[in-house]
Design a protein around this nucleic acid. Structure first.
Lengths: 138, 138
DNA sequence: TGAATTGCGTTATGATATAACGTATGGTAC
DNA sequence: GTACCATACGTTATATCATAACGCAATTCA
C-alpha cells in the first residue's frame, strides 16, 4: 500500500493527476507537457489536453510548478508546498537540473518594489539560468 | 532625417531589425512574434523566421526584451539599455501594460543566493503579474 | 431522482518556434 | 577587380506548445 498523495485541500488526486504527478516526480529534469504525455500514454492517457488539465490543477494547488522560461513543469520540491510563499528556480543550462528555492528576502524586495510602484502583484516568476555546482566542476 | 537607431556595438540596425524594433516601440503592449509579423508584413517581411531572427539579435543586444511568461516581446524602456543590469518586469493582467524596472538590491539578492548555492547565473527572469495602479483605481 | 458539478475522452485547431536550404550583400585580402 | 568570407535575407516545411468545443461518466446532494 503506497502513500496516497493528496491535494492541499485534502481531496485525493484523480487518476490523471496521479499519473502526471508521478511522471514529474520520477523525472530528474523538467518535463514538457508532451514529454509527460509520452510517459503516461501506456497508462491510458492519449491526448495533450488531458495532460494540460491535470497540470493546471497540480500547478494551481502548488504540487507542481511551471517553468515559464522552458515551457516545462516540475514536481514541487517540498513535501507539502503550500503554494503561498513565492518560489524561485535555478535551472542548469548544461544538465537541466532545477533547484527550487524560496527566499523571503527576495519576496520582500519584490513586495517593496510593488508597493512603491502601486502595483498589486498576484504572482511572480523568478528563474535563473546558469550552471549548477556539479557542472561548473567539470 | 530621422534618428538612426544603432546597436550597442555601434553598427546600424538592419532592415528587418529596424522594422521589428519600430513595431515594438509603437506598441503600448508586449507583442508576440506573430503580432509583430502582422505589423511588418506590408513592409516586406513574410515569414515568422525573419521576425524571430531579428528578435534574437535585438534581445541579445538589449534593445528588446523577451517576456517569458507571455511569450512576447517589448522594446527596452531605456534609451540605451546596456543589457548588463538585470531587468525585471511588472505586467498588468488587465491592461497589458508592462513596466520595466532594474532593482540593484534585487540583483544583489539573487547574486547572493547564487553564490551561496554555488550556482553560476548567466541570466535571470523576473516577472510580476498583477494590476497596475491605473487598473487598481477603476 | 434529477440537477449540478467535476473529471474524462475525442477531435480538431490555434499559437509559438525552428530546421534546412539557397540567394544577396557588403567588406577585405590579394 | 575578383575571390573569398561573413552576415543577413528569403522560402518552404515542420516541430513544438496549448486550447476550443463537444459529449459522456461519475459523484454529490437537494
Amino acid at each position: 500500500m503506497t502513500a496516497q498523495k493528496d491535494m492541499p485541500d485534502g481531496r485525493a488526486l484523480t487518476k490523471n493527476e496521479t499519473l502526471v504527478f508521478s511522471a514529474l516526480e520520477a523525472a530528474d529534469q523538467p518535463l514538457s507537457a508532451y514529454a509527460i504525455l509520452d510517459r503516461v500514454r501506456d497508462r491510458g492517457v492519449r491526448a495533450p489536453v488531458q495532460v494540460y488539465r491535470a497540470l493546471d490543477r497540480l500547478v494551481a494547488s502548488g504540487l507542481a510548478h511551471r517553468l515559464e522560461s522552458l515551457n516545462a513543469f516540475v514536481a514541487c520540491a517540498h513535501p507539502h508546498c503550500d503554494a503561498r510563499g513565492q518560489t524561485a528556480f535555478a535551472i542548469c543550462e548544461r544538465c537541466g537540473k532545477v533547484t527550487e528555492f524560496a527566499d523571503p528576502a527576495l519576496d520582500g524586495h519584490l513586495a517593496a518594489w510593488a508597493d512603491k510602484a502601486d502595483f498589486d502583484a498576484h504572482s511572480t516568476t523568478v528563474e535563473l539560468h546558469g550552471l549548477c555546482s556539479d557542472c561548473r566542476a567539470t
